[in-house]
């Protein structure tokens, strides 16, 4: 565990906490893409199947359980408890266009053609594009609440910090995983436009509003 990895995980955890608190405190999930949250639930379910087969560390087990549980909790809040506030008119991204190509790619490019490994690879590919419905929703409405922007910034930073972790591990431990690295790069690049707006607008106290 190096500092980049730890900061990445904490950033990821922070993003989830921000999102849950935002929904819970405002009793509303307006501006949040349920499609992205469904994708994240699929991502964590398929990635952490090794919870039942392999023990890594208490930290690892704890975080995996938290990520799986909170992803389902978020989906529950959006589609059941606060369903009336869900922005379904704007959340129209077709997630099958992400799920199926990611799965096909996982069947073709993986480290080992076994069920668990293909599902892990699928989760990595799917995570890299899972934020697209959320970014699509923001671009459709043309704006995002500050709290939603903070959520997106923390969530985007997490894989960016993992990139630094992988660079560190490549040199320090001679360890690398090309599938994770390339997908992580794609994931981080997708946030770049948002990062720019976040730094130039939200951090200066302005609302994130896209140019008309």
């Amino acid at each position: 565990m190096n500092i980049f990895r730890l900061l990445g995980d904490l950033s990821h955890l922070l993003a989830i906490i921000i999102l849950l608190l935002k929904i819970w405190n405002t009793r509303s999930c307006a501006g949040i893409s349920g499609k992205s949250q469904i994708l994240f639930a699929i991502v964590y379910t398929t990635r952490y199947l090794d919870l039942i087969t392999t023990y890594i560390s208490a930290y690892n087990t704890f975080m995996k359980i938290i990520f799986i549980a909170t992803s389902y909790a978020t989906v529950f809040l959006m589609y059941v408890k606060f369903k009336a506030t869900y922005d379904h008119n704007h959340d129209t991204f077709r997630i099958e266009f992400l799920i199926l190509p990611a799965f096909t790619l996982a069947l073709l490019i993986n480290h080992e053609f076994t069920l668990v490994e293909v599902l892990w690879t699928w989760s990595i590919y799917l995570e890299s594009v899972a934020i697209l419905p959320q970014l699509f929703l923001v671009s459709k409405t043309g704006e995002a609440e500050s709290i939603t922007s903070h959520y997106l910034f923390a969530l985007g930073s997490y894989r960016g910090l993992y990139l630094l972790n992988w660079e560190y591990r490549y040199y320090a431990e001679d360890h690398y995983d090309l599938i994770a690295i390339v997908a992580g790069l794609v994931q981080t690049v997708l946030y770049c436009d948002f990062f720019y707006l976040y730094i130039t607008k939200v951090l200066k106290g302005k609302k994130l509003q896209l140019p008309a």
Partner: peptide, 10 residues
């Protein structure tokens, strides 16, 4: 070194 399993990252 490329480890397929186990995965130690999240």
């Amino acid at each position: 070194k490329l480890d397929v399993q186990p995965k130690d990252e999240l």
